[in-house]
Amino acid sequence: MEVFKNKTFSFSKEIFVRFVLAASMAFAFVACGDDGGSNVPVGYGVGVMGACAGCQEINQYPMQVATFSAANTQGTVQLQNMQVFGNGMRYMSSGATPANNPGNMYSGPVAIRGNFVANGPLVDQSGRCQLPPGNYQISSNSVGSMSMGILELPDLILTPGNIRIQIVQGIMHQQATRLMGIIKIVQVNGMPCDPRFSDNLF
């Protein structure tokens, strides 16, 4: 069996200085990425929320702070792969353990993106708002908030279609992988919906 032995390598001073300079430059390019040197920490995206109103603080240091799913009792509405993004500078990672709920480690503005599945036609009590069954992309139209696992998303948009929804009184549980709360369909194709057009999420 071969045994690896420690060896001492010697470099000239000139080679050592060149190595340090090259490593420093490489680190600078990685840290800055292709955004022109915006000082975004390594591992963070840039502008992930696009045109989300009020999401500038998130876009400065975007960090995915949780991913959850949810559904109503009947299963006619499902939220899948809901990625929650916040400002990474507000994430309290020190002292985090597997027993901690990741949702409790963040307090600040948030935006989301994910999938909304309607497993049947959804119609409000007035009959004006009718959401066809299908798969929709869901994203934040304006900034929401999250604090100690409590999530408020007052302005979400579904595509395709001009569909606006809200998620309110959201409580993250099961290590921030599930969400309990209320989902409201506010507008379909520009038509305001009945205020009672809502359901509980689990």
Rank of each mutant, 00 (worst) to 15 (best):
V42A: 08
L179M: 04
L122W: 14
G86L: 07
D194F: 00
P121V: 06
V110H: 02
N104D: 11
G120D: 09
G45C: 05
M148I: 01
V77D: 06
P192R: 07
L153F: 11
G47S: 12
I182W: 09
P121Q: 11
V20Q: 09
T73D: 06
A28K: 11
N6I: 09
T8Y: 11
G144M: 05
N119L: 11
D34P: 01
M1P: 07
L79T: 08
G103L: 05
F68G: 02
V48H: 02
S147K: 15
A96G: 03
T73N: 11
I163N: 07
P109K: 14
E14L: 15
G47H: 07
G103F: 01
R128C: 01
M92N: 10
R113D: 02
R196Q: 15
P62A: 03
E14I: 14
F11V: 09
V110D: 02
L21C: 05
F11S: 09
Q137F: 05
I112D: 02
V30R: 02
V188K: 07
S12H: 08
S139Q: 15
S140E: 07
N87S: 09
M89I: 13
S24D: 03
I157H: 11
N100W: 00
G33H: 04
N104V: 02
N104A: 09
F116R: 00
H173P: 04
Y44V: 03
S24G: 05
M49R: 04
T73M: 11
A70G: 05
L179E: 01
V30F: 07
E2L: 15
T67P: 03
